[in-house]
Design a protein around this nucleic acid. Structure first.
Lengths: 139, 139
DNA sequence: ATATAAAATTATAATGAATATAAATCAAAA
DNA sequence: TTTTGATTTATATTCATTATAATTTTATAT
């Protein structure tokens, strides 16, 4: 059972053709739960895929998040981050070092689609901001 | 009791010198609860303040949000929005028209500073995304 | 197999929000 | 009034993201 095979099947289950590039990007997302951004993914894969283009990373991440296979986190003002964990959970982001951590969601938010105010809600994101454990220690 | 006076006093209470520009921007934030962005504010004030620069709008909004006098909403990928209502509440943003609505916060999130995961939490933002009432109707 | 069509990837350019920098203007205090 | 510091302004720059079009790859049909 290898990782590539899993990612390929996973992509197929979302109707996404599993190209080498897409598999590599999905693999990276599966293996690295650090909420990576485009640059981190590109930098990690580029050495072993010298022809890989940033555009492909952008395209693939947009494709995956549009399909619901990954989450696009709008939590960092400077750049988008992505999360392979699509289960309901919140995030903490450190304003010093930028580190993003997963946090549990209050039970009241765990329910699925609702319609508060008559709007159709498709996703809920809970973002805590502050100073992380490490940065608190270092100061 | 005029609006300018209120904004000036409000700015002073945050230790911010109430210049004409800052008062005008704060006035606009107080009067327009539409979660405006830099461009909206600039466009609204520019006619009556021809020399106003976008930089001043950026500077002032950063100053105000750093001081906690307004909220900076990281909810729209394309641009930042600001909110004069600093009380705990969540937001809904429509992916079609960009409209941002206020929503109540679940009681479990109303508490102030916490330290989940050992991190110091300074703010919490809850963002619902989907299709608003109006856009649902129009389609 | 080969030709053809469709899809994916890539390179390049363009957009646009936000910041950096420095000059000019304004306000306050000596 | 002079001087000092803060604020505003104009300009340039950065950088994430998107747009566009060309190239390459993959799938399909003959």
């Amino acid at each position: 059972m290898n990782i590539n095979q899993n990612s390929a099947e996973f992509l197929l289950s979302f109707g996404i053709r599993p190209s080498m590039q897409r598999i590599a990007i999905m693999d990276y997302m599966m293996a690295n739960r650090t909420h990576p951004g485009v640059e981190e993914i590109f930098a990690a894969l580029s050495p072993s895929m010298p022809t890989l283009s940033r555009m492909t990373v952008y395209n693939t991440l947009n494709l995956l998040s549009d399909a619901g296979a990954i989450l696009s986190l709008e939590i960092d003002r400077t750049a988008r981050h992505f999360d392979a964990d699509t289960s309901p959970h919140g995030h903490f982001i450190c304003s010093r070092c930028g580190h993003i951590d997963d946090l549990p969601l209050p039970p009241s938010l765990e329910a699925g689609e609702q319609m508060p105010g008559g709007h159709l809600v498709q996703s809920v994101q809970l973002a805590y901001r502050g100073v992380c454990k490490n940065c608190l220690k270092d100061q």
